[in-house]
């Protein structure tokens, strides 16, 4: 149980580095570290499918982020209502964290989930031994519409990136 807390502390440290450091490339490496930590956390939480998927997604994100970065971050500016904005954001975040901590009393303690819906999945699967990987059977059989939606999201992003990356976007004078 202590491993997940250590991993979370590591991820928080890497996230702080990613947020605050001035060099953009280091920042991208910081979010890479958060992603790797997340993948290890998924392994510790007994979710191997997710660990693999997270690694793949992480590598893709790093590649595209590195493609987009330039060398240096912008100098820290205190113009405008900087102080007011930052302090109000921090106050909002503190309020959110406090309220969320108070609401933890209503959800189960860590490690004792009230598994209701998944009992039905188990009872379906144990009779036939059709598909041994329950997560995969959920995604492909029971909740197939979610998988269709996920594929459509990827399709939309591919078409959209093609759409905004085109060089000639208007026809002049053609009516």
């Amino acid at each position: 149980m202590i491993e997940i807390n250590i991993l979370l502390v590591f991820m928080i440290a890497a996230a702080l580095i990613a947020v605050q450091v001035k060099d953009l490339l280091s920042s991208v490496i910081g979010i890479g570290a958060v992603g790797i930590g997340l993948s290890m956390a998924f392994l510790v939480m007994k979710a191997p499918d997710l660990a693999i998927m997270q690694l793949v997604v992480e590598i893709l994100s790093l590649i595209i982020l590195i493609r987009a970065t330039i060398r240096k971050d912008l100098p820290f500016s205190t113009s405008g209502r900087w102080a007011f904005n930052t302090i109000s954001t921090i106050i909002f975040l503190i309020l959110f964290l406090v309220f969320a901590y108070l609401s933890f009393a209503n959800i189960h303690t860590f490690g004792n989930p009230a598994i209701k819906t998944s009992q039905e999945y188990l009872s379906h699967v144990q009779g036939k031994a059709a598909n041994l990987n329950i997560v995969e059977s959920i995604m492909l059989r029971y909740r197939a519409v979610d998988t269709l939606g996920e594929a459509s999201v990827l399709f939309a992003v591919v078409i959209g990136v093609l759409a905004i990356a085109r060089r000639a976007w208007r026809r002049d004078g053609a009516e």
Partner: peptide
């Protein structure tokens, strides 16, 4: 969660459609 996935499809398509003229 189904509602969330479909909402994301619509939203992402909308973001790209707004930028369509580039």
């Amino acid at each position: 969660f189904n509602l969330y996935v479909f909402m994301e499809i619509a939203a992402i398509s909308a973001y790209f459609l707004v930028a369509f003229g580039t």
